[in-house]
Amino acid sequence: MLRSIKVVLNGVERTVDVEDHWTLLWLLREKLKLKGTKHGCDRGDCGICTVLVNNTPVKSCLVLAPEVNGAEILTIEGLAKEGSLAPIQKSFIEHSALQCGICTAAFVLTGHWLLQQGDGVDRKRVAEAIDGILCRCTGYRQIIEAIVDAARKK
C-alpha cells in the first residue's frame, strides 16, 4: 500500500510516498536517490547501510520505510554542513581510514554518533561500537584511530 510519511531528512522536512514493504534502505537509495547509503547484505550482517535515525545508528535494510514516519534521518549526504566537513570526516581523511569506500559512510556516521555519546572513547569502546559494520579492506585499525582521535580533539 502506498502511503505518505513525513520525515526530517538531512535537516529538511519532507513528505514522501512509500510502499508498506519497502525498507528504509530501498527508500533512500531507489526512491530518494541518496546513493551514499550502500547496500551490502539485506540481513543486518554487514552494516554498510547504516544511517542515523533519531540520532541512533540503524541498519537501514532492517527498517521498514513506513516505520520512520515522523523520524529524523541523517545520511552521509547530510553530514557536511555548509560545505565544510564534519570533524569525523576530516579525521577519516587524516588517518587514511578508508580504502574502497563502500563501507565508509556507515563507519563515519557511527563514529559521528559515538562522538556525541560522551567521554571514554578509547580503542576498545570504538571497536565495540563498530563491530556491527564490516570492512574487508582496512583491517579496521585506521578507522578506530580516526574515531579515537576525533574524540580526543573534541
Binding site: 545508528p57 540503524v58 532492517l62 561500537a129
Partner: peptide, 9 residues
C-alpha cells in the same frame, strides 16, 4: 547479543 547497532534496535 549481536552487535551494538543491532542492540539499539
Amino acid at each position: 547479543v549481536a552487535d551494538e547497532i543491532l542492540r539499539m534496535r
